[in-house]
Design a protein around this nucleic acid. Structure first.
Lengths: 233, 233
DNA sequence: GAGTTTGTTAATGCATGCATTAGTCAGACA
DNA sequence: TGTCTGACTAATGCATGCATTAACAAACTC
């Protein structure tokens, strides 16, 4: 492997990802990318062949994915990609609302640095610009960035981990509804108000603004899924 | 096994737990019971011998425990029971506060049945009775029951799963401080007020009462750990 | 004497084999 | 015609073996 000579690994960690880790990432990517759609099954052996490894690391990856709440492992059926129902989305958004609004409150309370405020504002500006040019994907990216920034600014790793787990579970529904939902103009307004509240260290307003924002977003999404008659995504 | 004949399994699920499941439960029990104290190491082989099985199911159990946030699996060192620092407790309580106060709000908003209210009141009464007879363990049990009841009444399984994960992580610190903390008289008062708010379907008060309750409990706990100079538990 | 290098040991990561058993389907039966 | 029985098939759950490699220590250089 000449690559080893060419790049004499500076990075930390294992020079080569373990098979189990590769399996985990690959399967998760397939699921989030909807190449393994909701409800689809994959046997250990099938996954192993597909990924060019034996069943053992695949099995370990499946256990992890099950803990992430994205698949179900059933004896004799391999793993099954969990569909997300409107009720699931209700659950997810209820928790997400609680976590993120607490994050907003916490960040406002401790106060953000000018640089942090600027990065939040930048995300809002990107959302606005994307929306102006009708770039929904760009808007979604910037929105995601905003939310993630908010959560990381708390410095609470457990909070981050839980939010990202819920985000993954909700991913498919969000992608699906991105072009079916009304134009997310309110989102931008809500986020701008949130940034303002954070900037003036108004924790209670920050919490309420984001709480209401997430609640509305959740209701819109669930309502949309219901109206579309989508029992599962 | 005469037991099999005596009780011809009515329940669903595998008649005999899988080895991986047994390993998972056994290890978790050892950890929560502090028989595997914070910071202790256990090699796959050691655990396997101790549990009378091969490394494979033990390995799978360790992967699950790692996802639960109670151990760390390090290549060559087996698993290590994660110590909990005051900063960890800060994280845990911040998230727990967010989740449980959202639960309080949700339950108050949807309204609880008389039976549900009664069970909450019963838990509070048990806390009071236990405290009156100086039974701290009894108090802790009833308190745990109250919190769990609150969370289950939301019907949100993701919320339940996350709360119980955080509870496990905080378990050792709570046990340790149970007899070092001031008498939990305020707890009982707070819970009684929360039940009242739920009964009158006052969601905003319910949220605030429980939010403040959890926040204070967290601060007390973290302060105690800090004061005791316990860098980790 | 401190820092390196090298050799050894041990634990892992993964592949593989096999007994077990759930799931399936044909065919008998009511 | 619907259901039950039983045999067959296939996927799993677990044990085991082995190559790999990190960790440790002893020897060694400067």
């Amino acid at each position: 492997m000449s690559a080893v000579l060419a790049r004499p690994r500076i990075e930390s960690g294992p020079s080569r990802l373990s098979s189990a880790e590769r399996a985990y990432r690959a399967l998760k990517k397939l699921i989030l990318g909807d190449e393994l759609p909701a409800g689809s099954h994959l046997l250990e052996q099938e996954a192993a062949e597909r990924l060019g490894m034996s069943r053992t690391p695949v099995r370990e990856a499946m256990i992890r994915l099950e803990k992430d709440g994205v698949v179900e492992v059933r004896p004799r059926h391999g793993m099954r990609v969990l569909p997300v129902s409107p009720d699931d989305m209700r659950e997810i958004y209820q928790v997400l609302t609680a976590l993120e609004s607490a994050a907003a409150e916490a960040v406002a309370r401790r106060g953000a640095t000018p640089a942090e405020i600027a990065s939040l504002r930048a995300a809002v500006a990107d959302m606005e610009a994307a929306l102006d040019r009708g770039d929904l994907d760009g808007w979604a990216d910037a929105d995601k960035r905003f939310h993630w920034l908010l959560v990381t600014l708390t410095g609470n790793q457990r909070l981050q981990q839980m939010v990202s787990q819920l985000d993954e579970q909700a991913h498919r529904a969000r992608v699906l509804t991105l072009r079916l939902r009304p134009k997310p103009v309110n989102s931008i307004r809500d986020h701008a108000r949130l940034v303002a509240a954070i900037a003036r260290r108004d924790a209670e307003s920050a919490r309420r603004i984001h709480h209401d924002h997430r609640t509305r977003a959740g209701e819109m999404l669930v309502g949309l899924l219901d109206r579309l008659g989508l029992k599962q995504v």
